[in-house]
Computed example of a mutant assay.
Amino acid sequence: MGRAAAASDRFWRNVTLAPALALFVLLTALPLIELALLSFHDVDWAGGVSTWRSTGISHYVALAGDNLFRVSILNTLLFSAIAVTGEMVLGFFLALLTTSVGRGRTIYRTVFLLPILMPGIIIGAIWKLMYSFDFGVINEIVTLVGLTPRDWLGDSHFALASIIVVDIWHWTPFCFLLMLASLESLPDDVFEAAEIDGASYWQILRAITLPLMLPSILVTFVFRLILAFKVFDEVYLLTGGGPGTSTEVISFTIYRRFFTEDRVGYGAAMSVTTFVLIAILIVAVIALTRRRASTS
């Protein structure tokens, strides 16, 4: 009887999971398979009908000599490393400050979350005005302190850094929200015992808070790393990949290949390569973090 009940439980569990699995395959697996197949073809359009022509691995071979693709990968890596690190650090310390506040905590949370609630088009318009060389508020402040105004979005030395600042401002609330939820879920008795033993604030932070929060920190980091690699709207709205290739990121390069140049097969090859690179990077980050956690 027990064996029959277990078999029945497995059957109904599989039945209830089947719709979700089918939806996942329909919305995720099939598009990825089609993208991979498309990367081995060129597509011609005539009379509203697409014609696929096999190209073998020629698109992937061409990627090795594509300077724009190489530059966009390097820019994306630099952008992701600096932006995500800044957002994680700021989000963590904002969460610490918020948990230490007794009164007005709800107000602080609301204010800190405002940037992530704004649509991308509004963020682009706001920061483009702020970065304006002629009447932007940033150059007004720079002039007031006696420095020389800069063309923040038109100078190749400052354009990528300017977009990184916008991304940090935009996405720090995301890290703050996850860090805050993790901090508030930590057990109070551990911290009370540490305080009774005479541990200082920094000792508690280093030896208790950070180790307990490591899983949440890792999840937040991986989520933000994936989103940072997909950055598009900020680049599109503020610089359009320029000046030159100083803000050319991989999503914007793929957009050019797909929609501007109509090189669908080549753009698909770029997409597949980028997907593989992101997967390798995330696996490496997770493995490194787990190794450090196990050794410590």
Results as ranks from 00 to 15, higher is better:
Thr98Ala: 02
Thr98Met: 02
Thr98Pro: 01
Thr99Arg: 10
Ser100His: 06
Ser100Cys: 05
Arg103Trp: 01
Arg103Phe: 00
Gly104Asn: 02
Gly104Gln: 01
Arg105Phe: 04
Arg105Tyr: 05
Thr106Gln: 09
Thr106Met: 09
Ile107Glu: 04
Tyr108Met: 11
Arg109Cys: 12
Val111Trp: 06
Val111Leu: 10
Leu114Ile: 13
Leu114Trp: 06
Ile116Lys: 08
Ile116Ala: 14
Leu117Ile: 15
Pro119His: 09
Pro119Gly: 13
Gly120Leu: 10
Ile121Asn: 14
Ile122Pro: 06
Ile123Phe: 07
Gly124Asp: 07
Gly124Val: 00
Gly124Met: 05
Gly124Tyr: 04
Ala125Thr: 14
Trp127Val: 08
Trp127Ile: 08
Trp127Met: 14
Lys128Ile: 01
Leu129Val: 03
Leu129Gly: 04
Leu129Pro: 00
Tyr131Asn: 00
Tyr131Pro: 00
Ser132Arg: 00
Ser132Gly: 02
Phe133Arg: 01
Asp134His: 12
Asp134Ala: 13
Phe135Ser: 06
Phe135Val: 03
Phe135Leu: 04
Val137Ser: 08
Val137Ala: 09
Val137Ile: 12
Ile138Glu: 02
Ile138Gly: 03
Ile138Pro: 03
Ile138Ala: 01
Asn139Lys: 01
Val142Glu: 06
Leu144Lys: 08
Val145Ser: 07
Gly146Leu: 07
Leu147Met: 10
Leu147Gln: 10
Leu147Arg: 10
Thr148Ala: 08
Pro149Glu: 07
Pro149Trp: 08
Arg150His: 13
Arg150Trp: 07
Asp151Val: 09
Trp152Leu: 15
Trp152Asp: 07
Leu153Trp: 04
Phe158Val: 05
Ala159Met: 05
Ala159Cys: 05
Leu160Tyr: 01
Ser162Thr: 07
Ser162Lys: 11
Ile164Asn: 04
Ile164Lys: 07
Ile164Met: 08
Ile168Tyr: 10
Ile168Pro: 08
His170Arg: 15
His170Tyr: 13
Trp171Gln: 11
Thr172Gly: 04
Thr172Asn: 02
Thr172Ala: 06
Thr172Val: 14
Phe174Thr: 15
Phe174Asp: 13
Cys175Leu: 12
Phe176Trp: 00
Leu177His: 10
Leu177Met: 14
Leu177Pro: 14
Leu178Tyr: 02
Met179Arg: 00
Ala181His: 03
Ala181Asn: 04
